[in-house]
Amino acid sequence: MTESASSPIVETRGLEMRFNLPTHFLSREKPVLHALSGVDIKIEKGETFCVVGESGCGKTTLGRAIMGLLTPSSGEIYFEGQRIDTMDEAARKPVRADMQMVFQNPYASLNPRRNVYQTLAEPIRHLMPEKSSQDVRAQVEDVLDATGCDQSWQRKLPHEFSGGQRQRIAIARALVTNPAFIVADEPISALDVSIQAQILNLLNDLQDERGLTYMFITHDLSVVEHFGDRVAVMYLGQVMELASTEAIYRDPKHPYTQLLLDAIPSLEGGSFDAPREPGELPDPVNPPPGCPFAPRCPIVQEICRAERPRLRPVGDSGTLAACHLAE
């Protein structure tokens, strides 16, 4: 694959992730958990690509696989046209500097025994060993300014900061190697309401200034509507719907997307008045043979239980949906 103006910055093809679970000592069965079953996505340069779904849908696994923190069972991952999942560690190093991650919980993602300077200098020292210590210092100072952190924070330890400040430091760490692509895994869900807006604005500003591409993993659809350009809705390791944010909210095609949208509490009230049936994710070790959403689907038909639907274009807004019945 060659790089061209229209080529995506990140692409996955048929990405599968299987985890072998411990075998029961009396059983011959080898249980396998399918965390991702055939995910194809393309993330374009400069966009905010949101991945939404409930816990267990594989959204974090997808982010981690793209980052190279997990090795896929099969399938291919490309970054700027190069295949990265088969690279050895030495070849991958410069790519790692170009793609970084922000984690959910800033209380767990910062090493409590390293001061802010050490935390921020580490990625440069490791991924860009050619940099002199002056360069490292200059880069750390720049990134602190860019993320709204005070220079006096350099010698402080994580416990001296509030949650919002810690998440700023975590974002600074992700930016310090000047990456083009950032995976942000639920970056605001551990923060207080009044702090969430601060962090979202920061991410927005950084994107404008640096032309960053985001893969934004979240369960919060109100954030997606405000922040995202395109959305992939995942369920049980598969993409159920892939569409522009605008199309998802205006005209959701997949019944699961509709269910997610209906679950958002609204400030107008009244949407929780009708009773709701208990629904739960099917067992990912023994997924149903057809559509994984069939057991919960309000419009399920015979074909849904027999045959797994593939992502296909639905409607005229460029939406892809994996549903036999969507139109």
């Binding site: 409930e54 816990s55 369960h219 919060d220 659809l221 269910l259 997610l260 209906d262 679950a263 958002i264 509490p265 949407s271 929780f272 008045d273 009708a274 009773p275 709701r276 049936e277 208990p278 629904g279 739960e280």
Partner: peptide
């Protein structure tokens, strides 16, 4: 999760 939240809250409300 959000869908479960909607279920539980509408149950409590009812």
């Amino acid at each position: 999760d959000v869908t479960i939240q909607a279920e539980i809250m509408s149950l409590i409300l009812r």
